[in-house]
Design a protein around this nucleic acid. Structure first.
Length: 441
RNA sequence: GUGGUUGUAGCUCAGUUGGUUAGAGCGCUGGAUUGUGAUUCCAGAGGUCGCCGGUUCAAACCCGGUCUUCCACCCCA
């Protein structure tokens, strides 16, 4: 049988894992520096925890785990006969793989609220699963790197998370654009347009501006049942890129003014950044639990032209996530790095540091059985001194061993023959330059 | 979930209107070189043409199904 792995999943070679770890380490370091604490939750949650939190579309993309045992005997015979998947599903599956890290976090906060000090700041770097159709930069299993804080509605956290996003991309050497908006501005926009109840339809449509253009947005709005007069109002907002200019448009909306004020506070407090920070009224973000500021980060195509990649990080504030699980209604705000996409971009731009290309400092090779034992002893000595060292385990032909060293990308090879074993002066070859010198350890 | 696309050696890909024995480059193995990889030269091994079925005297090639890849939607990191 031919081995394979499920669609949308991947194996990683050692070099890829080193580069991924570098990326995770950078992100983790900054999470830690900003005072976020690590937590862990199961990869499986009860399906009841997950369903209904991501909208109808999200429910479809949840991976369901089949119950154990004779699960079909407990399913309703009529539902089975009708092949009614939706009706049978809850009878045969009570668990599912997590779809993101935020909803499990909300569940976690409610379950452990008496053990946590609020505001509670946590981070998690872990895989999530979505039964989406795979594309480039889009997998069924992928890692998210989340930092969230619950238990405070201070806008300083919005500013802090903006700084955190900025700091991570600055260290990675990736020029990014951090785009900011506020759901309250979108609510205000919908209100001004006379469709306060249609905010979702409106935001989904205007979110596509950069993709389909103004005419495309107009078409989509009309298709979604927004009348022509409202479309004209909405169009006024589309080209606006500054808060000052959008404020007068929202003067008659209480919630709109609130959104403006919140964003203004964030812009005023965030301080100097390495990357660009922009207000973008067309930024919507799908997850419907966001209620306040929303973030999205993209590669800065001025600095890195030819990079085609969707958003590489995102986040936002949610007012009522824990309420769903019956806890105190704690406000929260968080961000998430799309590790896979950031990885792909770093790879494409060759931004990974050189030292992620190898794992060893030295490889020891020995020319005969007598010196092999000598090599093994040197191996232990160098390892004790903190070096990353490996030994070729037999006395093979030197050419073969050098080739192995080359494949493992070892920077230096220590060659031990009878000459070296006797003198204690080892021949060390620099694989980059090809030069050799004699060294005593 | 909808529509399309891809699959041939370890990798990247050729392969004519269906016609004998399916090729190349890189990689791999061995040798030139029993103390030198990456560079040079020589030789060799390696393929159920994704899988299942159908059409045909004959299928890598045509048809159906299925899996996979990538793309556009939907949605999203």
């Amino acid at each position: 049988m031919k081995p394979s792995i499920p669609k949308g999943t991947r194996d990683f070679l050692p070099g890829e894992v080193r580069r991924r770890n570098y990326l995770f380490d950078v992100i983790r370091k900054h999470f830690h520096r900003y005072g976020y604490q690590p937590i862990e939750t199961p990869v499986m949650e009860n399906l009841s925890t997950l369903t209904g939190k991501y909208g109808e579309e999200g429910d479809r993309l949840l991976f369901k785990v089949l119950n154990n045992g004779d699960f079909l005997s407990k399913a309703d015979a009529q539902n089975l006969a009708d092949k009614d998947s939706n009706a049978v599903l809850p009878q045969i599956s009570k668990r599912g793989l997590r779809y993101d890290l935020t909803v499990p976090f909300a569940r976690y906060v409610v379950m452990h609220q008496n053990d946590l000090a609020f505001p509670f700041k946590r981070y998690a770097i872990a895989p999530v699963w979505r039964a989406d159709r795979p594309q480039k930069g889009r997998y069924n299993e992928f890692y998210q790197c989340d930092a969230d804080v619950v238990g405070s509605d201070s806008l300083l956290y919005e500013a802090e998370l903006t700084q955190l996003l900025d700091a991570v991309f600055a260290e990675l050497g990736l020029k990014a654009v951090i785009r900011l908006n506020n759901r309250k501005i979108l609510a205000g926009l919908a209100e001004i347009a006379g469709h306060a109840d249609r905010m979702m339809d409106i935001t989904i449509a205007i979110d596509k501006l950069d993709k389909v253009g103004e005419a495309g947005v107009e078409k989509e709005l009309l298709e979604r049942g927004v009348d022509a007069a409202a479309v004209d109002v909405i169009k006024q907002f589309l080209g606006v890129t500054s808060l000052d200019r959008v404020a007068p448009l929202l003067a008659d909306s209480e919630i709109g003014r609130q959104g403006i004020a919140e964003l203004q506070t964030v812009f005023d407090t965030v301080g100097p950044l390495t990357n660009r920070l922009e207000f973008d009224v067309t930024l919507a973000r799908g997850l419907n639990y966001y209620t306040g500021c929303i973030y999205e980060v993209a590669v800065d195509t001025d600095a890195h032209p030819n990079i085609k990649m969707g958003s590489i990080a995102g986040g936002g504030r949610y007012a009522d996530l824990t309420g769903i699980f019956g806890g105190r209604d704690l406000p929260g705000v968080g961000i998430s790095f799309g590790a896979e996409r950031v990885y792909d971009v770093l790879e494409e731009l060759a931004l990974f540091p050189e030292d992620t290309s190898h794992d060893l400092d030295y490889l020891i090779v020995c020319l005969d059985d007598e010196t092999l034992l000598h090599g093994f002893q040197l191996l232990g000595k160098l390892r004790s001194a903190g070096h990353h060292v490996d030994l070729y385990p037999t006395a093979a032909k030197l050419g073969k061993m050098m080739k192995y060293a080359d494949q493992r990308n070892v920077p230096k090879v220590i060659i031990i023959g009878s000459r070296e074993a006797q003198s204690g002066r080892y021949t060390v070859k620099d694989m980059g330059s090809g030069e050799q010198e004699e060294v005593e350890f």
